[in-house]
Design a protein around this nucleic acid. Structure first.
Length: 554
RNA sequence: UGCGGAAUUGUGUAAUGGUAGCACCUGCGACUCUGACUCGUAUUGUGAGGGUUCAAAUCCUUCUUCCGCAACCA
């Protein structure tokens, strides 16, 4: 990967290392298995994983599965697959937060005995009222706050034994009801939930809450630096309270960074799930989805995603990254390594009138003009070929270098041709272009050394493979979810052109047996890969840039 | 409202008191058998006011705006 990252997180680590407080850096990625990983998760993965790597430390994957009501094995499996695909190897191991339920429970009893936690019998509403709705004013002590430790312990054990209904009692940490930080006003650390756990089954009917369980999980795994997103910043004092009161000392240490946002992309798991459930998209792996499986199916590489979040940087301010930066990352990664192939997306027939009828020949086209070792392949040529509609203009606009009546262009790897005339239908649309070839210019080199302005690509009609191609665009028309007016339905801002299928695309024969996962540059158009679920159909990964701008028709 | 956090060019991110830099995007140009790639080049920035200092993006102060939290979610 790249050189050692440097940001405000690594500063903290460097300082801890320099002070001799820690020897080996240990990080973790703790997703809750309640949805599919998306490109926003890649930031969290990359930060934790790359830092562990850079310092020669360890990186854990830990499923944060403390709320059985929202979690499912489907997500557990998808997360594992996605992480494997990314290549972020958890060299510290794979863990489940729920495997620490016994330890969490023991620690809870310990806290009770030390008078640092108590069983509270306030209802959810009462508890909120006691905590204080009027911000700024201290909260009110629960009537059970000073309950005898043994009494709390007995109650807590009965909670575990299933003697109470959901919500009837909670275990609360005894911290500070007057704290300006609401998280410290005796937060609940255990709740009763008679729900089976996807991994623990019916073993438990009480489950620890995130703020209590997470620091314990981190501590037990020897995590030194627990890096999470900004919304947990207010929770850090509580995290530290747990770590210290359980006797772990200064580590693990939590630090926070800003989430990743991308233009015209929705990142919230809630909305993504809704898009799937409402069949707005094909599924979690729809190539328009920002999920890792969607991006993978579309043809993105793990390297490009890591590069993207690396380029975006780590900071604490809200950011909205331009999706075109991701385009840049995938293009620069694919360009030097991906084989070139010829494909005509929007075909227009071109007949070379002076080419011997029925003749066929083959030209050797380079697989990658930048890389001689990539070799060449034979591409069949004949007198009737497909060219791109956009490569012909009956009336050439300014600076147009492609084909137009009377002009000469190079057919890539083949002859120079000059357009002689066109056929049109009754409404004036061009249906066929006629041209004469300079038959002395096979392989593109004119004998007299004259310059040709343009080079266009082509596919022989007799040898073309038909295919359908999916062109993807941004799912949403609004750059940011915040641009959607208050109260409006975000689904009204779905981009109707987020996917366009072009049937009847003409591919060169060498693409006939391409496999999903293989990526090609369709010369002059973009990068493509066969769709994983429908290999007869090609997905566009990203468009090639075209610096020629058609002038406005004003 | 209370608490916490953040404001640097169109976007993102550097610069710990000393030349505001880098990348993306955009424009222009060069090169080219991909109008790709590559190369060159240009434009635009320290939220506002006050203060300290020889010197402020940086320190102090007032203000403004934005974000997060205020769950028996994570």
């Amino acid at each position: 990967m790249s050189e050692k990252p440097s940001n405000f997180l690594t500063e903290v680590i460097d300082a801890d290392l320099a002070a001799g407080k820690v020897k080996e850096i240990h990080t973790r990625f703790p997703p809750e298995p309640n949805g599919y990983l998306h490109i926003g998760s890649v930031k969290a993965i990359w930060i934790n994983w790359s830092i562990a790597n850079a310092y020669g430390g360890k990186f854990n994957l830990r499923y944060d599965d403390t709320n059985p009501a929202r979690e499912d094995v489907e997500y557990v499996n998808s997360i594992r697959e996605d992480l494997e695909w990314l290549g972020a190897v958890p060299n510290g191991g794979v863990y489940y937060g729920s495997d620490y339920f016994d330890k969490c429970y023991e620690y809870a009893e310990q806290l009770i005995l030390e008078g640092k936690a108590y069983v509270c019998e306030l209802s959810r509403e009462e508890l909120q009222a006691y905590r204080g709705d009027d911000a700024g004013k201290p909260g009110k002590d629960s009537p059970w706050r000073e309950r005898d430790a043994q009494e709390s312990l007995a109650l807590f054990r009965r909670m575990r034994a299933g003697e109470f209904a959901d919500g009837e009692k909670t275990l609360r940490a005894k911290i500070d009801m007057a704290s300006p930080n609401m998280n410290l006003r005796d937060p609940a650390i255990y709740r009763i939930k008679h729900v089976a756990h996807h991994r623990q089954g019916d073993k438990w009917c009480i489950y620890p809450l995130y703020d209590y369980a997470h620091p314990i999980q981190d501590a037990l795994e020897g995590i030194t630096h627990s890096m999470c997103s900004l919304e947990f910043e207010n929770h850090r004092p509580l995290y530290e309270w747990v770590v210290q009161n359980l006797g772990f000392g200064e580590f693990p240490k939590q630090r926070e960074f800003a989430r990743l946002n991308i233009t015209n992309t929705v990142m919230s798991k809630r909305y993504l799930r809704e898009l799937v459930e409402l069949n707005v998209v094909e599924g979690w792996d729809d190539p328009r989805m920002p999920t890792l499986c969607g991006l993978r199916r579309r043809g993105y590489t793990p390297e490009s995603l890591f590069r993207f979040v690396e380029l975006a940087g780590v900071a604490k301010s809200v950011s909205l990254l331009d999706a075109r930066m991701l385009d840049f990352c995938i293009r620069t990664q694919l360009d030097p390594v991906v084989p070139r192939r010829v494909a005509v997306l929007e075909p227009l027939k071109l007949v070379i009138d002076n080419y011997p009828a029925g003749k066929t020949e083959a030209f050797a086209l380079p697989n990658n003009p930048k890389d001689e070792n990539a070799g060449t392949r034979a591409v069949s040529f004949s007198g009737e070929i497909w060219i791109e509609q956009s490569d012909f203009a009956q009336v050439p606009p300014p600076k147009f270098k492609r084909l137009s009546p009377g002009s000469e262009v190079r057919l890539m790897g083949a002859y120079l041709i000059t357009c002689t005339c066109v056929e049109t239908d009754e409404s004036g649309n061009v249906t066929c272009v006629h041209a004469n070839a300079d038959l002395e210019t096979a392989n593109g080199m004119p004998a007299d050394g004259r310059k040709t302005r343009g080079t266009i690509h082509w596919v022989s009609c007799a040898h073309a493979v038909d295919a359908a191609v999916n062109l993807y665009d941004q799912l949403f028309t609004q750059a940011d979810m915040n641009d959607i007016p208050e109260g409006a339905d975000y689904k009204d801002y779905l981009n109707p052109d987020s996917v366009r299928t072009l049937p009847g695309c003409k591919l060169e024969a060498a693409l006939a047996d391409a496999k999903p996962g293989e990526r090609f540059q369709f010369v002059r158009t973009g990068y493509f890969t066969p769709d994983a679920k429908n290999p007869a159909r090609w997905n566009r990964i990203v468009t090639l840039k075209d610096s020629y701008k058609m002038p406005d028709a004003t």
